[in-house]
Write a protein that binds this DNA or RNA. Structure first.
Length: 341
DNA sequence: TATCCGTGGGG
DNA sequence: TCCCCAAGGAT
């Protein structure tokens, strides 16, 4: 364990007109940071006060979500994290409950056909996540004795587990000390610390540095901080209409102190959907999810007019292992793991 | 690094 | 209505 935040006056003289505390990035000198083309994290007047303000707020306003209850266990936390990747809490709740009731442990899911996971995934979207969660369950059963690993690196090695999910599971399920950088936390830090309305499009090294620099030293406090900042971003410091009047750190928010300047730079481009392969894939898979028997080609052909795109979408689903083609030309959700192409 | 990958609710 | 965006990951 390394002591992270230490008062440092070696901050680059650049343009630091703000208060005099800069959490020292681990092993990163101002020179190396400059060499890497990135500035040191913005100064934070009093990290400890920031921590307690947000954590206290969390104590009063945290939602009672099923994956936060002790009985959820690490598997419950992991399942929730997969489902919450790009999907709102309200839509996850019912599916989560059914999922945990059916597969209370990883081994149960691992014993199923992957298609069952895809079917149970329902309309949560991005069904490859269902396949990856199934794959993670298989790996947990095979490599970890059926228990969700505690170690960040082992979590990261599981299918569908990236930097965020590994940190989230290690932190929320096991109380570990990790920088949990999701879209909510990134927005909170962008505003409260960096003083801009929105974080960059893609997560930057500077953001990771900042998150690490702000991490409380104590494991339990760090885990609490992670959950608290995430909740603050989800409930108060929202993307569109931030509820600054309800915010426990509004008075120390760099963005507010700067007069809440609007986002400058290029508009953040949204995802187009209508007419894309994704829409076609969604329609095809919806048919297959509802079907109990293999679906003939002509039934699938009915979901989309344009034959080239339709075929491409179906091929893509097969390549992804979401759909299994049968010898007679019909299709179904996969009974076995996809063959590596 | 930019793109792809679903689905639906709210402003 | 339209548009934004919601606890990301893989390539």
């Amino acid at each position: 364990m390394t002591a992270i935040p230490k008062p440092s006056k070696s901050a680059p003289p650049k343009s630091t007109t703000a208060p005099e505390y800069t959490a020292a990035p681990e092993n990163t000198t101002a020179a190396s940071a400059a060499a890497a083309g990135s500035a040191a994290p913005p100064p934070v007047a009093s990290p400890a006060a920031l921590h307690s303000a947000v954590i206290d707020w969390f104590g009063e306003h945290a939602r009672d979500l099923p994956w936060r209850r002790p009985e959820a266990g690490a598997w419950g936390v992991m399942v929730s994290e997969f489902m919450l990747q790009q999907t709102p809490v309200a839509r996850v709740l019912p599916v989560y409950e059914q999922w945990l009731a059916r597969w209370p442990r990883p081994a149960g899911l691992a014993a199923e056909a992957p298609g069952e996971a895809v079917r149970a995934w329902g309309r949560l979207g991005y069904p490859r996540r269902a396949l990856r969660l199934h794959g993670a369950a298989v790996a947990i059963a095979e490599r970890h004795g059926g228990n969700v690993p505690r170690d960040h690196a082992k979590l990261l090695a599981l299918p569908g587990v990236g930097e965020y999910t590994a940190a989230a599971v290690a932190s929320f399920a096991y109380g570990g000390r990790h920088a949990v950088l999701d879209t909510n936390v990134r927005r909170v830090l962008a505003r409260a610390v960096t003083g801009v309305q929105y974080p960059p499009t893609a997560t930057t090294a500077a953001e990771r540095r900042l998150a690490r620099a702000l991490l409380p030293e104590d494991d339990g406090t760090a885990a609490r901080w992670a959950a608290s900042t995430m909740e603050l971003g989800a409930l108060v410091c929202t993307a569109r209409n931030p509820g600054c009047a309800r915010c426990p750190i509004a008075a120390r928010c760099a963005w507010r102190l700067a007069g809440s300047p609007p986002h400058d730079g290029p508009p953040r481009r949204g995802q187009t959907y209508a007419g894309t392969d994704r829409q076609v894939r969604g329609k095809l898979l919806a048919v297959l999810r509802e079907a109990t028997a293999p679906v003939p080609q002509r039934v699938l052909d009915a979901v989309w007019e344009e034959p080239v795109q339709r075929a491409r979408a179906l091929d893509g689903l097969v390549a992804d292992g979401l759909v299994e083609p049968l010898a007679d030309g019909s299709y179904r959700l996969p009974l076995s793991r996809a063959e590596p192409t």
